[in-house]
Amino acid sequence: MSLTGKTLFITGGSRGIGLAIALRAARDGANVVIAAKTAEPHPKLEGTIHTAAAAIMEAGGNALPLLLDVRDADAVEQAVAQAAAHFGGIDICVNNASAINLAKSEDIEVKRFDLIQQINMRGTFLVSRACLPFLRKSANAHVLNLSPPLTMRADWFAQHLPYTLSKYGMSMVAFGMAEEFRGEGVAVNTLWPKTTIATAAVEFALGGEALMRRSRRPEIMADAAYAIFKRDARAYTGNFVLDEDVLREEGVTDFAHYRFDPDQDLEIDIFVDPALKAE
């Protein structure tokens, strides 16, 4: 199965993992909607909706850049409707937009707490719901949330409770929607990296250059997402998977080319059992 002619609605896809997923789909000739909040160049962060659209076109796809704040419910509805009208429908919804703040319960400002819940959990719910009328018309509809498996470990919640609530909230949306829409042929799954991924979030919010060097490139998440999109939506839904596991199921055994720095040991990502090893 190819993504040729399929339409993806990707939130926060102007850089990082979202852009990597977009470019992988574009190689098949897919239509990609980049719905993100960065329209003008940022002093530190590379990429805008317009540079992403240009890269998608260069990779062989069709692109529609849309300025969107996923916290704005009316804007979400309008963006999804515009995307569906432009490309004739929506086949895949990728909830990639996310805000990160690893402060502890007593340290985080209330406005920051609200922000990460609104973008991560609420935004995921709003975008998924808005896409559903169009996804129902697709022959193989997928919703993919970039959020972790629902492993209820108190120590993970204790480390950064506000952020954990927001990311687990995204997974809870998938958990419920997968069952709610199982009979309608709309697959809802989550995907999470086994290791840290070399993105702006890792560089500026987590561990700087040192952690970047112990990370994998975003392309591993893109390849895993691509594999999920090609699976039968009526048979593959309600799953919470790691990128490496998905690719192993596809027969991949060599992951060396995904390393940001081949000379560094890999760092297991948060919400993943630290006892696991990555190659």
Results as ranks from 00 to 15, higher is better:
1 M>S: 14
4 T>P: 00
6 K>Y: 08
12 G>P: 02
13 G>H: 08
13 G>F: 09
15 R>Q: 14
25 A>R: 08
26 A>C: 09
27 R>K: 14
27 R>G: 08
27 R>P: 00
28 D>R: 08
37 K>Q: 12
40 E>S: 12
41 P>S: 07
48 T>C: 10
49 I>C: 06
53 A>Y: 13
54 A>D: 14
59 A>Q: 10
66 L>A: 02
69 D>Q: 03
70 V>G: 06
74 D>T: 15
74 D>K: 15
87 F>H: 12
89 G>M: 04
99 A>V: 01
102 L>Q: 06
107 D>I: 03
109 E>F: 06
112 R>G: 02
113 F>D: 08
115 L>E: 15
120 N>Y: 04
121 M>F: 05
124 T>K: 02
133 P>Y: 04
136 R>D: 05
144 L>F: 01
145 N>P: 05
155 D>C: 04
157 F>G: 01
162 P>Y: 09
167 K>N: 12
167 K>D: 12
169 G>E: 11
171 S>K: 07
183 G>M: 06
192 W>R: 00
193 P>E: 01
194 K>L: 04
198 A>Q: 00
201 A>W: 00
201 A>I: 09
204 F>H: 14
206 L>P: 03
210 A>K: 06
210 A>N: 03
212 M>Y: 03
213 R>S: 14
216 R>H: 02
216 R>G: 00
216 R>Q: 06
226 Y>M: 03
228 I>Y: 09
236 Y>I: 05
238 G>C: 06
239 N>Y: 08
245 D>I: 02
258 Y>D: 07
258 Y>I: 06
263 D>R: 10
266 L>D: 11
274 P>N: 05
277 K>G: 09
